[in-house]
């Protein structure tokens, strides 16, 4: 369990640094990449720190559907 938490934390920090780097690049798909990385961080916290991976599939699907829908709408408008 501790190893999973440690690995999750490390991945989240690396993703945060990558997001900040992409924000300062003048790159066509930067917004898409930033939102994609924030999706991964969101799922990392929910599924591993909050242990949603152990919850009923209903709660998992609901959260993933919410964040996918939100980030897609924000990107698309």
């Amino acid at each position: 369990m501790e190893r999973t938490f440690n690995a999750t934390w490390l991945v989240l920090i690396v993703l945060t640094i990558i997001s900040a780097v992409f924000a300062n690049l003048d790159f066509a798909y930067a917004a898409l990449i930033i939102l994609g990385l924030s999706f991964l961080k969101f799922i990392g916290v929910a599924f591993f720190f909050m242990e949603l991976k152990r919850a009923n599939v209903f709660w998992r699907v609901l959260l993933v559907a919410f964040v996918v829908l939100l980030l897609t709408v924000v990107w698309a408008v």
């Binding site: 997001s19 924000a23 930033i34 939102l35 969101f42 916290v45 720190f49 909050m50």
Partner: peptide, 20 residues
């Protein structure tokens, strides 16, 4: 879970407000 919720909200606010 409440504390982690603060993380989740921030993980949406930070990229959209500060980076996008």
């Amino acid at each position: 879970a409440f504390w982690h919720m603060c993380d989740l909200i921030w993980l949406l606010l930070f990229p959209i407000i500060y980076l996008l």
